[in-house]
Amino acid sequence: MIRLQNVHKSFGDNTVLRGLSLEIPKGTSMVIIGGSGTGKSVALKSVLGLIQPDSGEIHVDGKPAHQGDRDAFLARFGMLFQGAALFDSLPVWQNVAFRLLRGSLKRPKDEARAIAIEKLRRVGLKADVADRLPAELSGGMQKRVGLARAIAADPEIIFFDEPTTGLDPIMSGVINDLIREIVVEMGATAMTITHDMTSVRAIADNVAMLHEGVIKWTGPVADMDTSGDPHLDQFIHGRADGPIEAVR
């Protein structure tokens, strides 16, 4: 279980998180929705320690997230970044097997390559992309490679940062289906941030609506349409009128 309790974070005068509290039960898929600049990415990066919160507590399986062996902590996570964040200078298979080629999870090169190709197949890519450079791939293929990298070491927890941003609707559907299949298949705990409602319905077990640095509503995805929360209603229906200012 991932638990964020009363997390605050400011960047200079800009207060992003104002006491964020959220629980993600083990083996479930939580999707955090909210407008741009509401602190979704900051919340996600705070769990990983990429951003240090100003105050508040973050626990993973009952233990403080940022104490103890950092490598062991990070080895439990996989992450798909918004722009895939593939390493330009490395061929696709080395991107996927990055964690398997160095550090505590290091494997022999041939074995790491075989695992990378297997993971590429899992996300619907053929083995012949393994030796290509990321710049030679389309946006959708890069996302799939990013997804393959996120699952390469069979992590217990997977984070997805805007997994369908910049993709056409068909490719978005493919990525959403892949994420759902992989999360169910691996039994992983997933945390996704998005403002794509199609993704929410495809990926989520539970949904949390983040606005102005706090969770306005959280609950099962099935209850989302009948929540009665004005922030959530406005967001899922894409209305300009409501408690969320259209101009931010």
């Binding site: 970044f81 964040a85 330009d88 990298r149």
Partner: peptide, 16 residues
Amino acid sequence: TMKVTEQIDALVTLST
């Protein structure tokens, strides 16, 4: 460029 495209964050999440 690696920083702007989150490759540095990706390195950290990959325990590097």
